[in-house]
Design a protein around this nucleic acid. Structure first.
Lengths: 354, 354
DNA sequence: GCCCCAATTTGAACCGGTCCAAATTCAGAG
DNA sequence: CTCTGAATTTGGACCGGTTCAAATTGGGGC
């Protein structure tokens, strides 16, 4: 303190530490720590002094040190399984916005190992080092956006909510996702109103979501006395294209095709174009996801909107519930989707978005 | 140690620490630490023993503690400015893949504060807490994907590479990005070969990238003796739609429109459709970005491909260069883009992707 | 068998915080 | 003016690693 040299001992490169603040304010570092995390337990004068000194020094507590000492970070982790899926980006953002509103801090991270050009594993395999990192960081809670393969259960001890994915039924995790059953019913009812009966489904390959949607389609068809027509296919444009081409070549082709998702549905539209089949007059097409792209005039695809904003909001809410009462039972929140009708099912300008 | 209770002191919940391994192997924790980070300095026997014990205990070093002690994390940070932009996702992934190949570990993080529904600030404002977090984590290096506003320079002391963005010229950061000048030349030459002369540009609003591309267009036009026609517009579909509608209503409308990006170009296509203008016969349209969507048969948009994979790879490479020689001069890597010709400029099935 | 030097191993300080028991201060009561 | 209990402040151990100087071990040469 008294030494002429000691005063400017701060090396300019790194940020000031709690000790620097303590020294500058002439108090112990414990008090500085307290002043930050439990201000009312510190006397008026010193508190002001400490906060002011911290301000001028540009002090900000070090996350790492804090997390290490506390055995837990001050934030909620948001693990986005697949960055390439715009839907996940939308949900992740909605989650973060909601956390923000409640004063929580969401850190978004992604780490899909899979090369998305390798169709064999398009989704969900996560770099194990990221898992380790996340475990070390010990977030208050974790929101996993999308379907994770293989690592389920690896976050034991951290309250976890799955957004837009279905945890294995025995896993005991809370999840928030679209109600595929209702989605399928909305679609089939819409198509029936338009007079369709030979309604085919394209999809079913590639994971739990695919199976769930296929099953929902079958159930909706059967409960309405219609015969399911299923063409197994994946999630991509080319999958939809191939499946639709086959379907349209049948002796009595379907008059409507329901797709596993919008991207594949766009492949179906292309297949119809190439086969000289007019949409929607000769073929109606419906997708799921309502990606922004589907709203483009050139596409104008009728689609089931999973209400991603809502999924994000409720996921954040679910985290608060768990944090408030850690013993809470895991819940499965099923969100009612909304059918967005566009020109792939209803011709002309009659389409409406409500 | 000798006490009967002490032996199973590991609490089952948390991961074993370096001390647990040391105790189990009967060595000091220093040696365990050494065995992990500098194996050849540890004697054969103990090394084997330590590694084996660590294995059976399931020990993994704690990132936080390591980073805190080392004043630096073992990974390279990848900060993605805007999750909603699929191009950034592509670059980020390419970066990570390349880092992986070289044995480095890339942690992807995103943190755009802006609500992407608010057009006033679509990009780039980053949550300051994330900045703080990143500073604390002290990654070896940082790769910023996309244009960051306001926070440039906040990562002082961390080698930083900007991918797909233009740092302020005085900032002294390395960047890797598409060469917009060459891009504009490719486009204009392509259109001239097709006989176009009244070639308009739509865009220019919304940031540095927009200005750069507008300037590149102007230069390419003027150097070829053509008169620039510019309609200021933003990045979205609606922006392109509005601008194109105005352009097509002119007494002598352009025969070709070059757009700031693909999304806006798609709006231009819609505007043409609605105006009864046939693409490409009466109007040629070109975009920039070559988003996957542009390859769809229903869109088939000629576009400048920025070579995102290459940008990602070179960005990672640039990081290695800086790491190898910290005093290296900042470099501006300009990537030569590639024109992907589709049916929005060349009719029929003559289109080729080269 | 002894000495010396290199290789190996250890102990302790440290990174930047948190947290708690103990020490100090302070105000009001007696 | 002293005593007491509450409010405030402090010292030091700790989180889980790294690091380096010092201590220990081991092998080879004489």
């Amino acid at each position: 303190m008294g030494s002429a040299v000691g005063d400017e001992s701060r090396t300019s490169g790194s940020r000031p530490t709690i000790r620097d603040v303590a020294a500058a304010a002439g108090v112990s570092k414990s008090l500085v720590s307290l002043a930050f995390k439990d201000p009312q337990r510190v006397g008026e004068k010193r508190r002001e002094l400490i906060l002011r000194t911290a301000q001028t020094l540009g002090y900000q507590p070090n996350f790492l040190a804090r997390s290490l000492a506390t055995e837990g970070s001050p934030f909620v982790g948001i693990l986005v399984v697949n960055l390439h899926n715009p839907i996940f980006a939308e949900i992740a953002d909605a989650v973060r916005v909601e956390l923000d509103k409640q004063g929580e801090y969401g850190l978004i991270t992604s780490a899909t190992v899979a090369n998305h050009h390798d169709p064999a594993q398009p989704y969900g395999r996560i770099d194990s080092r990221v898992i380790a990192m996340l475990q070390d960081l010990r977030p208050k809670a974790l929101i996993v956006v999308g379907t994770v393969i293989e690592h389920e259960g690896l976050f034991e001890g951290i309250p976890t909510v799955y957004a837009s994915a279905e945890p294995r039924s025995d896993s005991g995790y809370t999840s928030v996702r679209m109600d595929d059953t209702q989605g399928a019913e909305l679609v089939i009812d819409h198509l029936r109103e338009l007079g369709h009966e030979r309604i085919a489904f394209v999809g079913g390959l590639g994971g739990a979501v695919a199976k769930t949607r296929e099953f929902a389609y079958r159930k909706a068809m059967e409960s309405r006395g219609l015969t399911p027509i299923v063409r197994e296919a994946g999630f991509f444009e080319s999958d939809g294209y191939a499946a639709a081409t086959e379907l349209l070549a049948l002796p009595s082709p379907p008059t409507a095709i329901v797709s596993i998702n919008d991207v594949s549905a766009i492949g179906i539209l292309s297949a119809a174009d190439d086969a000289g089949v007019v949409v929607p007059d000769e073929l109606a097409v419906v997708g799921v996801d309502n990606i922004p792209l589907s709203a483009l005039k050139r596409i104008s695809l009728t689609s089931v909107d999973p209400q991603n904003q809502m999924i994000g909001r409720l996921s954040a809410q679910a985290v608060f519930d768990i944090l408030a009462d850690p013993n809470e039972q895991a819940k499965q929140h099923l969100i009612t989707p909304k059918l967005i009708v566009r020109q792939s099912t209803v011709g002309g300008n009659a389409a409406s978005g409500s």
